[in-house]
Amino acid sequence: MRNLDITTLRSFVAVADSGGVTRAAGFLHLTQSAVSMQLKRLEEVLGLQLLDRSGRTIALTASGEQLLAYARRMVALNDEVIGRLTDQAFEGEIVLGVPHDIVYPAIPRVLQRFNASFPRVRVQLVTSYTRTLKAQYARGECDLILTTEVERTTDSETLAERPLCWIGAPDGSAWRQRPLRLAFGRFCTFRPRVIAALDSVGIPWDMVVETESDRTIEATVSADLAVNAMIEGTEPVHLRQIDHGGTLPNLGAQMINLYGADKARSQIVENLAGLVRKSFSSIAVPSLQAAG
């Protein structure tokens, strides 16, 4: 009877999620050689090749893809058992505030990993605009918040600095029209910057959608009826960065800042802050995809 080891399965899942041994090793707090050895041991136990190492990046083989679903379930079940039976000390609730436009792809992974480690702690996710979240944080209504701002602040920790990009429909042409049709939230912090950039180069514009609903904006842009701006790497899969060739103005960089980590009142808040840091530092920014 052959038995699968949870440690090797955890390493396998980490490599699959992060796209490489180096990042997986950092997430697991192990050396690269230790992770590679665990993957080799797993392949030997199963008698299968799980990873295709022939290219520049590691990819899963067909057997690896099949194992991944099982591995996730086994690791999650292991963590649930350990958490429920031994983690009695950590209970309560943490309120995490995140702007709408940077929830994906990082935050779902953060919540999943945190829940595996602290199953008795509830994380209440609050999504809103940066200025609203900062006001809630100032009133003590949030333990941790993320913000999108144009500068670093003395009372926060900057997790990432990313370009603000023009976003449109796949193979869309709305960005070529004049006046340029825009779709933005009423309180979006990107909106004044976008308008100022267009005015500075003399491009006429028309705000065709002004709403508090992100879904409305996404639907309008994906229908190629308007364009929007988002931080590079946070656009939904059904929208694309616009390869405008310099016909639209540069929008500069945007800071993703974390507030509250320096005032963490407990170990569990600091653990959540650590996962947020790691997730935003490890997101691979996709290559530019044309939208027209």
Rank of each mutant, 00 (worst) to 15 (best):
V81K: 08
T86K: 02
Q88Y: 14
Q88G: 15
Q88E: 15
A89D: 03
F90C: 08
E91W: 07
I94G: 12
V95R: 13
G97S: 11
G97R: 10
P105Q: 05
A106G: 06
A106T: 04
I107L: 03
P108Q: 01
P108W: 04
P108N: 08
Q112A: 15
N115Q: 15
A116N: 13
P119D: 13
R120I: 09
Q124W: 00
Q124G: 01
T127P: 05
T127L: 03
Y129A: 11
Y129K: 08
L133Q: 05
L133Y: 01
R139G: 00
I145R: 01
I145N: 03
L146M: 09
T148P: 03
R152K: 10
R152E: 14
T153F: 07
T154Y: 04
D155G: 01
E157H: 12
T158C: 10
L159G: 07
L159H: 10
R162V: 15
C165A: 11
W166H: 02
P170T: 14
R176H: 06
R176G: 00
R176K: 13
P179M: 04
P179K: 14
P179G: 00
R181N: 12
F184Q: 07
F187T: 12
T189H: 02
F190D: 15
F190E: 06
R191Q: 14
R193K: 12
V194I: 04
I195H: 05
L198M: 00
S200D: 12
G202R: 02
G202L: 00
I203T: 09
